[in-house]
Amino acid sequence: MTPATAEPRAIRWLLVALAVLLLGAFLLLPLAAVFTEALRRGWGPVVAALADPDAQAAIRLTLLVAAIAVPVNTLGGLAGAWCIARFTFPGRALLLALIELPFSVSPVISGLVWVLLFGAHGWFGPWLQAHDVQIVFAVPGLVLATLFVTFPFVARTLIPLMQEQGRAAEEAAATLGASGWQSFWRVTLPQIRWALLSGVLLCNARAMGEFGAVSVVSGHIRGETNTMPLHVEILYNEYQFVGAFAVAALLALLALVTLAAKALLERLGARRGGMA
């Protein structure tokens, strides 16, 4: 950095201190509050709250929902990124805008739409009832709501990167006689894997942590249709504040692990040139 484009040392440190202080107060204090509240009465109640069969069921359900939603959105995101970043076609900008749309839709609406479709009074409700298929207030509803909310994550991480990389490498592979799948597995995927992983991680974090959307489509049945965030709310409403914050702390821990993994991936990506 040349002196002409650098601020005086004092100002630099002031700015750094200000950024650290503000972010700390704004972002870290809430996190600290979660852990403090959880550990208010020591580790015993925390372990008890997490070992509770209903909590265990909530954890299992959360994992199941994420295990379905994340792969589907990863696959869709890859396909979307491939056609948007590698080809030009009429309506491409519209397609991109539509893929990003769920970001600006309220989570409550993301849950509501499924009720409008599959609720007993929704479009397909009567048919589903006649065939005894349960979608809302059951696991499929939770999966669908989560799919909607986490829809753009993978595509959004991949598209800018793949656009920047251009299609030269794949064209070269094609000229050399590689099949589409070969070129995808050997050329494209290695180029994007770190970005892909970090998109998947964020998608997963959101899938596990979603509250508003699943709250609309869950029947709030303990041990049946309660995901972890919903379980937090239930415990909170039962005055089991330590338990609520214990499950919340577990979720927060998950978020921290996600962030650490993402940071690691970005470093790897930067080192191997797999990311912009």
Partner: peptide, 11 residues
């Protein structure tokens, strides 16, 4: 981004 919204709300 990563912190569940309900947890953020409670905190």
């Amino acid at each position: 981004f990563a912190l569940p919204t309900a947890v953020a709300g409670l905190a």
